[in-house]
Design a protein around this nucleic acid. Sequence first.
DNA 1: AAGGAGATCAACCGCCGTATT
DNA 2: AAATACGGCGGTTGATCTCCT
Length: 323
Amino acid sequence: MGRTPCCEKEAGLKKGPWTPEEDQKLLAFIEQHGHGCWRSLPAKAGLRRCGKSCRLRWTNYLRPDIKRGKFTLQEEQTIIQLHALLGNRWSAIATHLPKRTDNEIKNYWNTHLKKRLAKMGIDPVTHKPRADAGGAGAAASGARYRAAAHLSHTAQWESARLEAEARLAREAKLRALASPPPPPAPAASGLESPTSTLSFSESALFAGAGHDDALGAARAPAVLTLRSYGEAFGEQHNFGDDADAPGGFLAGVLLDCAVAGAEQRFAAASADASVGEQQQEEDKGYWSSILNMVNSSMSSSSSSLTSEAVTDPAMYLPAAAEF
DNA sequence: AAGGAGATCAACCGCCGTATT
DNA sequence: AAATACGGCGGTTGATCTCCT
């Protein structure tokens, strides 16, 4: 009954940090044979490790397509936005950050971003200004609370959509394996995602931006979030009145948090002489870039993001601080 | 220079959903 | 249908590094 017995509990397996020799063995084996079944890999590669440990070492460290080092501002923004949408679903967030591992993103969130948001008076879990923060937080508008009330619903909506995307992708892959490949699709028709609210032209942007099609499609919701920033900004300023539009409310919360947090932080910084000028400049640049994204999408369209807006690389660059 | 505190991050642990027998 | 393995995920830990006193 069942599969062959697992030998994972086998005694004498090594734990702890990997040595360069072990890395070399694992790399050499995978380069030559691929990883195949992780369970049987250690024995074949001559490693006294469990398969799980090998898989982890490969996916988090040895894989050649891993980018290491400091996170860029754009990456930070993406993480914050996606965390607001998806919560602690690090693997889902990692699919939108090419070459970053879920473990790295999780670590970065826990050691940097979470603290930074908390310091700014934003609850890193709800992405709302903390009730006990006072100041700008206490002065939150009715719209902010209205937005908060919809947060859960919106996140669930987006989460369900992402799951549907994944399911459809799996099914498509299975179909592709079972039948000969279709002729190349026309450049811009008939490829709309059945679940995404993103137009093909928007999805295609990623595919044409140096990523493969699958990755481009996977990143599409990130664009959705950026567009939502624009929608929310319009909503907050009476540009639109579609209160039930998915994404808009959530983005409203984020934008509101960003502004309130920045205001509060700057006020605190002014009062507290211990906060250095450099830190203030960093914060200004950080939050103004978020606002810049909003403005970029606003200027191209008040209700939706055009392809021109997204293809403009300047949209992802830090804006000059104009506080 | 030394020691303590805090920050960082690689790796482990335990759980869960899916695949396999 | 049930039992079991496998792969993946998120939470947590602990060794190491860096900064501060």
